[in-house]
Write a protein that binds this DNA or RNA. Structure first.
Lengths: 232, 232, 232, 232
DNA sequence: AATGAATGAGCGTTCATTCAT
DNA sequence: TATGAATGAACGCTCATTCAT
């Protein structure tokens, strides 16, 4: 007997499908944004930033919208001008934060480098774009709250994970074809490639204070193992 | 691949509990328990079992003590006879569930087998004793609620993780010494060995409904990679 | 018997409004209205019409000014340019709608017809001018919200009811004097004459969907009883 | 777009059907009520009484549950031990208050008296059992809130009005058959008989302070008119 | 005059915790 | 011990009202 009804979530999920942005960058007829609109967009960002902070610190259930508002420098009611409810705020936050990540990863599939070089480079990107940024908090939140937000999990799977895995799959296939990679199983289980990343995120959020983890070094070690490199 | 039937889980949970009461019936030094004490201990166990179920399903914040009480077949107030408050119940639960885990793993350090055989055996144990049992839920809960329960995270780190890692460290060191394992880095980052396990746990709780993951196959693939085995 | 189509109602409402502006185009003493003033008056009317609709549908407390504004095609703030607050809007609405009613009824006192003919004619007027129009909603609202708006109740009593009852009193007295009516008590209790009208209004708003009431037939039956007519 | 969903109301309506009371008055096995139960029943009554007061004064929407609680001498949360929500409290209140009224009226159908005597007696009963009691407030509330609570209106129609009208119908039919009553139309429109009652209720709640109405005298006058009595 | 974004007081509802029985 | 009725602080959300533009 979960608190929220699945139907409401499913309904909202529909709205998670990437809306076709009718305003293209080069659109000449687009009127310049008025101060109103700029202010409004800034407020929305402020609320999202505050929500990220509060959700990260307290989790979805324990985060108080009043604190989000206070942190964003707006009144409680203002949140509801931009988001339908607490749940929508959370989902919009996740979408907003993760969308750019996908583009980054998909980019890798197009780069034609030897796999080892590509892997090292991917570690750099992940280290900079994920670890230590707010995005890792979002991923943690999705894993943390996912079981109670099936729609969010589905969105994340559909819009983020499946795309990332598809891109990784291409890269790996190419590497195998070129004889740069022995382990075909990685194509079937791309999770194995991502696992250390996940562990780094969880570790540092849970045990970081007790025993910090050098995530980059660990990721490098992982690549070495996958490539059966180094250490010798 | 639905999570699993509650009855099986409860049965399994029962088998986890005896570890706590080390006294056997014939134990001379133990004063015989009165019916009162037996009943009392049984109640505490019932509450813990119910709490595990509820916390696993709803998370700490959303779990309702009323539901825990109902599931345990006691009154709401009774919980407070055994646990100071909701937080204490959660922490006690985690502690009680984790204690037996350590023994299991430390056991491995004493087994003198070739590393590949040991690794395969470890996968079997993990698959049967962790995946698909309520123990995985406890681990998920610690990762999930850890940031909000520093004391619990510290306890887990000190009493469980550090011991497990120490044991793993011994095993790995021996394997390296014997030339059964190339990658010394694993000794520094035992997390890399555990990562796929963690991913399997999280994946199936978050995305299991969307796209189930064959955890055992993935773990096998991981060992193959670490040992630079197979696939060819 | 669905309430009625909004379009018809709106049209009818329009025809109610002119009563407020007594100045005719050729009125010399009136300074000619600028386009500004005309627009302004039109807006006020639009707001009143929208308010009538919303208050009728939802009651005073549940009616939302945002919905009133939307229906009137103005912004929320605009309402406050014409009315001090929600309560004032409601009271102004009631006053504006009721003013024309009185003239109608007072007219009857001046018609010199035999009472039975007058009564039958009154039923026709009531049926067409009250039942099924938005006027009945205003009356319902006054009865419904009256206890919480003493000032409105007093206004209604003073400006509408007492005048209507005075007019009815004259008619009845004449009928009694002429021997057309036995029951002098009606002069003391004109409510008895109006009661079926009131019941028709309330019935159809509350139970209309369950069991529609043929108001006109009921009113006719009532007159028959009062005049001790028919049926035989 | 009414505030509450009809489905929820319809669902609740099911529960309005008179539950078969399994405990009959003469039930020997019924254990005497403990102090607990007595206190509990008293509390429920206190809450209902307080709710009646608050709903009567403020209407459903404007009544504050905090005030109900305060008036009942309980905490806000206590209300929710006895009633699912504000709406259920309102509906239970209506049911509780009106159920006894029906029995009263149905009783009349069994009394074999000349119609004039019966009518006079009915006025007495109504005057004592309805006018000036809390029950008139309930009836006013049902008429007032009915349009927004279709389930309540339906309940009132089914459980109260239809039964009362059926009983009145029998009485009237007998009166017509015996030649004690001319106006057969009353059988078709029992509302005409009840109309003055309704007017008395509404009048005194809305205009009682401005101009009190002698309800009993008015009802008597109405019976005189129906019977074409008196005045002469 | 007109707008509508912003405000924040207010209320229904939940649930951990207490305590009389 | 055990109960579960009672409590009341807390929080999500609404909406009348304000005010900068």
């Amino acid at each position: 007997m979960p608190p929220q009804s699945p139907s409401r979530l499913t309904a909202r999920l529909e709205s998670l499908r990437p809306a076709a942005s009718t305003e293209k960058p080069g659109d000449k007829t687009a009127k310049p944004k008025g101060a109103r609109e700029v202010r409004s967009a800034a407020r929305k960002e402020a609320i999202l930033a505050a929500a990220l902070e509060e959700f990260s610190t307290s989790g979805f259930a324990a985060a108080r919208l009043e604190d989000v508002a206070k942190r964003a420098g707006v009144a409680k009611g203002t949140i509801y001008l931009y988001f339908a409810d607490k749940e929508a705020l959370f989902q919009d936050l996740a979408r907003e934060m993760l969308q750019p990540l996908v583009a980054h990863v998909e980019n890798f599939a197009t780069i034609d480098l030897p796999f080892p070089a590509l892997a090292d480079s991917m570690i750099d990107v992940m280290t900079h774009e994920l670890l230590g940024t707010r995005r890792q908090d979002i991923i943690r939140l999705i894993l943390t709250e996912g079981p109670r937000f099936p729609a969010l999990a589905e969105f994340y799977y559909r819009e983020v994970l499946s795309k990332i895995f598809a891109a990784i799959g291409q890269v790996l296939q190419r590497a195998v074809d070129r004889g740069e990679l022995r382990h075909k199983a990685l194509i079937e289980f791309p999770q194995l490639l991502a696992a250390p990343m996940l562990v780094a995120i969880m570790w540092n959020s849970v045990f970081g204070a007790i025993s910090p983890l050098d995530a980059k070094a660990m990721l490098k070690a992982h690549v070495d193992i996958v490539l059966n490199r180094g250490d010798a």
